[in-house]
């Protein structure tokens, strides 16, 4: 469970999706998504492959516009604001893409420095110092002159995370942060995520398949199934939910570890 939970008693809503519908071709991928992401907390979106989890993320980032419904980020409706206003909102975002999305013709240093060079007026010395700081935080110091193709999968993710955090964002999005990594590397990414979130206090939205490990880092877990969010709740409640789709998902991914109170009354009572 995330250590930030106790910091705010009534967390603000950072991002809200209201009745979001999205159709690609003849396929209705999102069929009325309602979801709230609380500021300073970690919300994990889970679901089977191809359900549209990344599409939800793209809506939050303003990369895709909903056919119906609204996406509110810090109270602003992304579909009604100008490009300039959207870019101002995006200045508060950091994104770790599934494959890190590093610029392959740039070195590690240039990749991390890019947002600073393009979006701030900082001097070269300031940029160097900030990039070095983030690379050190990600245990990447000494790799700054390497190219992405020369890095391992785990290192690429760490560079991606360094780049995502270099502008000290308020919200960080993680799209399958541990896909393709072994258990050891996954744990390293989770450790860095936990450490940086403690340090910077950002809101995190994570799309992940890594169940149940990801539950330990989350404040809220939301299941996307049949084009809708079947429930967004703390992980303990999620694992005990009566919603048949959530139950099916939990049992498929974790095995029938938990039973509901309804099935076994008194199971969770403390003696």
């Amino acid at each position: 469970m995330n250590g930030n939970t106790g910091k705010k008693t009534l967390p603000e809503v950072a991002i809200e999706l209201q009745g979001v519908v999205k159709t690609f071709g003849r396929q209705r991928v999102l069929d009325g998504i309602d979801l709230k992401v609380m500021a300073g907390q970690t919300t994990v979106i889970v679901g089977a492959s191809g359900q549209g989890k990344s599409v939800i993320l793209k809506h939050m980032l303003g990369l895709v516009r909903p056919d119906e419904g609204r996406v509110l980020v810090f109270g602003q409706d992304l579909s009604t604001i100008s490009r300039k206003e959207l870019n101002e909102i995006r200045m508060n975002f950091g994104v770790l893409f599934q494959n890190a999305a590093l610029f392959d013709s740039m070195t590690v240093f240039d990749n991390v420095a890019l947002p600073l060079r393009e979006r701030t007026r900082k001097s070269d010395a300031e940029i160097r110092s900030l990039v070095d700081e983030k690379l050190k935080l990600m245990d990447l110091f000494g790799s700054e002159s390497k190219y992405p193709a020369q890095l391992s999968g785990g290192m690429r993710k760490r560079v991606g995370l360094a780049r995502a955090l270099v502008l000290d964002p308020k919200v960080v999005f993680f799209d399958e942060p541990t896909t393709g990594l072994d258990a050891h590397k996954s744990n390293e990414i989770y450790r860095l995520f936990y450490q940086t979130q403690q340090q910077l206090g950002y809101t995190a939205v994570i799309v992940s398949h890594d169940v149940p490990k990801i539950f330990k880092l989350s404040d809220h877990v939301a299941l996307l199934a049949q084009g809708q969010i079947q429930g967004c709740m703390p992980p303990e409640q999620f694992q005990l939910s009566d919603n048949p789709l959530i139950r099916e998902y939990v049992e498929t991914t974790m095995g029938p570890i938990y039973s509901s109170e309804k099935e076994e009354p008194g199971l969770h009572e403390t003696v």
Binding site: K58, L61, G62, L63, N87, E88, R90, M91, F93, V95, F97, Q98, N99, A101, L102, F103, D104, L114, P115, E118, R119, L167, F173
Partner: peptide, 14 residues
């Protein structure tokens, strides 16, 4: 394909 253009947009770089 490798989401580098999405990454640029998310960094508010046109």
């Amino acid at each position: 394909n490798s989401e580098q253009i999405d990454a640029l947009e998310c960094m508010a770089i046109d």
